[in-house]
Amino acid sequence: MTAVSQPVAIRAYVRLELRRTLRDRRTLLFSLLVPPAVFLWAGTSADHRATEVGPGTNLTASLLVSVALYGALLTAASGGAGVAVERAQGWTRQLRLTPLAPWAYVQAKVLAAMAVGAGSVLVTLAVGAFAGARMPASAWVLCAVVAWAGSLVFAAFGLLMGYLLPTDGVLRYLNLLLTALAFAGGLFLPFADGTPMAALSRVMPTYGLAELARAPLGGGSVELLAVVNVVVWAAVFLAGAAWRFRSETARV
């Protein structure tokens, strides 16, 4: 297959992935219900709704953005980690007999995972809009876009972990790892400047995304370090996933 026809193969594989995901009720419930439930449990108290953190923005909105981003990351990562099951079934080795290039397989898996992540973001934000979250209209749009686009990084992360983690219990390990990275990167609770944890958080793969997602709440100012963090980790995870795919399917 020529390079020109690879986009056709990618679209076909993305459709296959999405149909398979839509048939998985457990994945859909986890993606669409858990993040809003966490937000309703942790972010809708009267104190949170009354606390202002910026112009026209309350603490409930800030927590909503963090939870929406976390839901997108977790959903996208879990979708990418589905490669672990495909490895156990021998599916990835069979793909080497098809015209689908390794990079195209990685791209298709990432795009499908991001599509499900978009649903998680929209549902979570919709719940927040009816549960007392207040922020400027532009922030609603920008935060949603950043959270969805940021899921690219962790769709690739999940894909890589699907190759590295044991097949049995891969999602359990992945959830624990991602939760630890979320806290270490200051996604839920930013660390005070000048502390050792604040310095450590800046190298976590969740740090840049958390800063970018919350930036619209504070007027849109973004540190260059946050952008660099996202770009570097995205490149690392995408390259790692493509490398592991080539390594495991080199012999067919």
Rank of each mutant, 00 (worst) to 15 (best):
A182M: 09
G80Q: 01
L217A: 12
G56W: 04
L142K: 12
E52Q: 15
E211N: 05
N229L: 03
G90R: 06
P36E: 01
S66M: 05
V228W: 06
Y163G: 15
N229M: 03
W233F: 14
G43L: 01
G54S: 10
S151G: 11
Q89N: 13
L22W: 14
V227D: 10
L142Q: 15
V170Q: 09
P99Y: 08
T98C: 05
F30V: 12
Q6H: 00
A139R: 07
W140N: 02
P99N: 11
T249I: 05
A104H: 05
L97P: 06
A81K: 06
L142Y: 07
T124I: 07
V231T: 07
K109H: 12
A76L: 07
P7V: 07
P99M: 08
F130V: 14
L171I: 07
D193C: 03
G128R: 05
A50T: 12
R172T: 15
F39K: 03
F191L: 13
Y163R: 10
T92G: 07
F154R: 02
L59H: 03
M204G: 00
M1R: 12
W148R: 04
L22M: 14
A239D: 11
L97S: 15
N58Q: 10
G71H: 01
L29W: 13
V14K: 03
W103L: 05
V14H: 04
T92S: 14
E17S: 08
M161G: 07
L73V: 14
W233L: 13
G219M: 06
T27H: 05
A112K: 02
A126E: 03
S31M: 11
A12R: 15
A126W: 05
L142R: 14
Y173F: 15
T21R: 06
F130G: 12
T249F: 02
R96S: 15
Q89S: 08
E211H: 08
T57K: 02
G117P: 00
R202I: 00
E211Y: 02
S66F: 02
L152M: 12
G54Q: 08
N175C: 11
A118D: 02
F183P: 04
V146D: 01
Y173K: 12
G82C: 05
E223H: 12
L209A: 10
G162N: 06
L111M: 11
V53T: 08
L171T: 01
A37F: 11
L164I: 08
F188L: 12
A77Y: 00
A12C: 06
Y105E: 12
V106E: 00
S151Y: 09
A250M: 12
L177H: 04
S66V: 04
R202D: 01
Y207I: 04
L32I: 03
A241R: 03
E223C: 02
S66L: 04
P205I: 07
M135C: 09
T167P: 03
S138W: 15
L95C: 09
L74F: 13
A133E: 09
T249N: 04
S66A: 15
G150M: 04
R23A: 14
L165R: 07
T27R: 12
F237V: 09
T124C: 13
G128K: 05
A155D: 05
A113K: 00
L95K: 08
S5D: 09
A241G: 11
L33D: 03
R11Y: 13
R214H: 11
P166C: 14
A101N: 01
A50N: 14
